[in-house]
Design a binder for these strands. Structure first.
Lengths: 225, 225
DNA sequence: GAGCCGTAGACTGTAGACAAAAGGCAAAGG
DNA sequence: CCTTTGCCTTTTGTCTACAGTCTACGGCTC
């Protein structure tokens, strides 16, 4: 036990830079999701290393992680290429997302505390405000946080881990479409919160399923245009 | 077009060793799942490198991949430790597995061809034979192949990818328990095949759900002993 | 005797260098 | 004019070396 009277949280933990590979990973993921690196593009290690001011090694490790998570394709002895999502893959990903999110909604409904529900409602309110203000970026971010919060309330770390990755990839494909939907989305969120507050597992599952299925519908509608 | 008269498939493709990191990855995963490397054990890079006859680099890359997939915990500036599964985590993993497998069964029931069903029945027959012969290792392997086949029939690559990883980890936790169940398991498989052959999505889902839930029950029963 | 500080060892994190393989281009031959 | 072959450039895969950091042990002080 510390004998000093310092409050526990006051020590800023003197933030260490942390492993370089992780920061490279974050940077590359940001570049990919923002379309700065386009699908199919050839990623040259030395190039990225020079651009980021680090050695090739951390870049390599970051690329490998991105590979296992499906963001880049690592062709042996040839290099890394930004993954090109096919329509089929996007569809399969949406199927899985629906599954995971629906289960999360069910679990959240099973044991949601009033504090959690309050947090959801707050996020929802902010989201609606962002939509009204036409602040699309904020709305998208709040949407992500809303779903993440439900995951948190579900209390299943493994599920959250998988859903986090799937969601992020879905959002990558879905970004161009996201600007259409927006208002309707938050209405559905409201209904979902109500179901969770009522501890109605079946209704929560069904609402979340419909909600994510609407995403799929929007995606396909977009594809055709 | 080749002017030589060589038959197309006869060329053995002269198997190249492939990236060293992948083989190191496979080797380490084998060592972990077979309990040669016990949970909590400290994995020293240079040690493994020397033991496998390679440099530290491929070992590092393999460890990082194992880290992202949840097999080892990579504590910064301290090294890699074989992940220690907690009861809670095992339970969450089983929940997710139930979810994924049940969906796979539904999809398989939705569009299963007669060829696929025949393959399932063949695997089932072999599995029953292995159980009767008390060949536990073969039975476990065939069980894995059976579930993998259903995944394949589901025709969802993303789902298969996730389920493959989850399944392997579940099997890791579950291995000591596996020797109890065995006979009952294949009876349930038979029922599942019948549901898929009938294209009864609801029944296939439910049967697979019960089937994987039985695994959970066995696990918890084991825990108490 | 107990607790603290200093030092040494070991391991990881990162950088740089070398060898091998793949793809592209040009020149020679049919 | 087309095909094929050889070379060359580029990029990856692997190894070795060095610096930073954490842990553990031993001595020292109170």
């Amino acid at each position: 036990m510390l004998s000093t009277g310092l409050p526990q949280g006051a020590v800023p933990k003197l933030e260490r830079p942390g492993p370089l590979r992780d920061r490279v990973y974050e940077a590359l993921l940001e570049l990919i999701t923002t379309r700065a690196l386009q699908p199919g593009q050839h990623l040259v290690e030395s190039e990225l290393a020079g651009h980021l001011g680090v050695s090739r090694q951390p870049v390599r490790e970051a690329l490998q992680r991105l590979n296992t998570e499906g963001w880049v394709d690592l062709r042996p002895a040839q290099g890394a290429f930004v993954h090109e999502p096919t329509d089929e893959e996007a569809d399969q990903l949406l199927t899985v997302r629906t599954l995971l999110e629906a289960e999360a909604a069910r679990l959240a409904a099973a044991d949601a505390g009033s504090a959690g529900i309050a947090a959801l409602e707050m996020l929802c309110a902010e989201g609606e405000k962002a939509v009204d203000a036409d602040d699309v970026d904020a709305a998208v971010a709040l949407n992500a946080r809303f779903h993440a919060k439900i995951m948190e309330l579900a209390g299943n770390a493994v599920l959250a881990e998988l859903a986090g990755q799937v969601d992020r990839r879905v959002r990558w494909y879905y970004t161009p479409v996201a600007r259409q939907r927006g208002h309707q989305s938050w209405i559905e969120h409201r209904a979902l919160i109500a179901a969770i507050a009522d501890r109605d597992q079946r209704r929560a599952t069904e609402l979340m399923r419909e909600h994510t299925e609407h995403t799929r519908t929007s995606y396909h509608a977009r594809q055709r245009s």
